[in-house]
C-alpha cells in the first residue's frame, strides 16, 4: 500500500510514504523553489537569484517544519519505534455507569455500526458492570483489546494476520486474514469480533471486510498523526477524564507518572500477557 515519492533528490521525505492517502506536501514546495531559481536565473542578477533561492528555501522549510509539527508524530517515512509502548489507563472511579460515550465515539470513528443483531454485531469496545460478590463494591469500565505484549491472538494466527506493531499496538492485517477465528478463541478478553455481514458506513482510515476478524486498533491512524484516541477524546470532552493515553516507556509521560503514583491492575494478569491497558480504582 505504499507509494514512492517522485522527488527523491530534493525532498526530505524521500523514500516510501506509508499510506496512499498521505500526499508528500513537502515536495511541491521545495521543488517549486528550485524550479523558480532555474527559470529566473538567466534573466536576473546573481544576487537576486541567490536571494530568491534562499528565501524560497527558508519559506518552504519553515512550512515543512510547521506541517511536520502539526501533522505527524514521527516522519512519515519512518517505521514505528520500539522505544514507545503505547498504553491506556482507565480510572474506573471516574467512569460513569450510564455513560457509553467511549463506545459511541469508537463506533463513529471506525464505522462498526451494527445490524440490530447483538450476537453477531461487531463490538470493538464494550462497557462492563462489575460488582464484588464479597463487598458489594460496584464499578463500570470499558473493555477492549488489551494490546498485550504477548498476545495469544498473535501466537495462534496461522497466517500472521494478527500482529503486534513495534510500539505495542495489536492489529489485524485484513489482507491476509482468512477468517478462521482462531484468534477469537484464543483472546482471553473476548475483545475480537468477526465481521458477519457486509460492513456499511466504512471509514477510509479503517477498512473493514466481511469474513475477517477485527478489534480495537488503539486508533493507530490517529496516533500516527499525533491525535488523541477517539474514546479518550470523547471522554475528555465530556469532562469525565476517565481515560489517559500515553507512552508507557516514557517515565515522564502523564500515564507513567499516574501509574507510578497510584495502584493499578490489569485484566487476567495471571496469564502473563502483559496488557497495555491498565485499570485504577478496581
Amino acid at each position: 500500500m505504499s507509494t514512492r515519492c517522485t522527488c527523491a533528490e530534493t525532498c526530505q521525505q524521500a523514500g516510501s510514504v506509508p499510506r496512499r492517502s498521505l500526499s508528500c506536501t513537502t515536495c511541491t514546495r521545495t521543488t517549486g523553489g528550485s524550479e523558480s531559481t532555474k527559470t529566473v536565473g538567466t534573466m536576473v542578477s546573481r544576487r537576486c537569484a541567490i536571494t530568491g533561492a534562499l528565501s524560497a528555501f527558508v519559506v518552504s522549510h519553515g512550512v515543512f517544519l510547521l506541517l511536520s509539527k502539526v501533522v505527524a508524530a514521527k516522519p512519515a517515512d519512518q517505521s514505528v519505534s520500539r522505544t514507545i509502548r503505547w498504553g491506556l489507563l482507565v480510572d474506573v472511579t471516574k467512569c460513569t455507569e450510564g455513560c457509553s460515550s467511549c463506545v459511541d465515539a469508537c463506533r463513529e470513528e471506525h464505522g462498526w455500526t451494527g445490524f440490530g443483531r447483538p450476537a453477531t454485531d461487531p463490538q470493538w469496545i464494550r462497557k462492563l458492570f462489575l460488582k464484588d460478590r464479597a463487598t458489594g463494591y460496584a464499578v463500570s469500565l470499558p473493555i477492549m483489546c488489551q494490546h498485550c505484549e504477548f498476545p495469544p491472538c498473535v501466537d495462534v494466527c496461522p497466517t500472521g494476520a494478527s500482529f503486534r506493531r513495534a510500539d505495542g499496538i495489536v492489529l489485524v492485517d485484513r489482507h491476509i486474514c482468512i477468517g478462521c477465528r482462531y484468534c477469537m478463541m484464543a483472546c482471553p478478553y473476548n475483545a475480537r469480533s468477526f465481521v458477519h455481514e457486509t460492513p456499511r458506513n466504512q471509514q477510509p482510515h479503517t477498512p473493514r471486510g466481511k469474513g475477517c476478524v477485527e478489534s480495537c486498533t488503539l486508533c493507530a491512524h490517529r496516533i500516527d498523526h499525533d491525535r488523541p484516541l477517539a474514546c479518550v477524546e470523547r471522554c475528555t470532552e465530556l469532562g469525565h477524564q476517565a481515560l489517559l493515553f500515553g507512552n508507557l516507556n516514557d517515565p515522564r509521560s502523564d500515564i507513567s507518572q499516574r501509574l507510578a503514583s497510584y495502584a493499578s491492575v490489569r485484566v487476567r494478569p495471571d496469564l502473563r500477557t502483559n496488557p497495555g491497558i491498565y485499570y485504577q480504582g478496581l
Binding site: 501466537d155 495462534v156 494466527c157 496461522p158 497466517t159 486474514c177 482468512i178 471486510g209 476478524v213
Partner: peptide, 24 residues
C-alpha cells in the same frame, strides 16, 4: 472460513508459532 478464497494465503504465509499453521 470467513475468506475461503484466501486459502492459498494459508499455504504461503505462515506464523510458525501457530499450531494451526503446523496443522496445515
Amino acid at each position: 472460513l470467513g475468506r475461503p478464497d484466501r486459502l492459498v494465503l494459508a499455504m504461503v504465509t505462515y506464523n510458525f508459532k501457530s499450531i494451526f499453521a503446523w496443522n496445515v
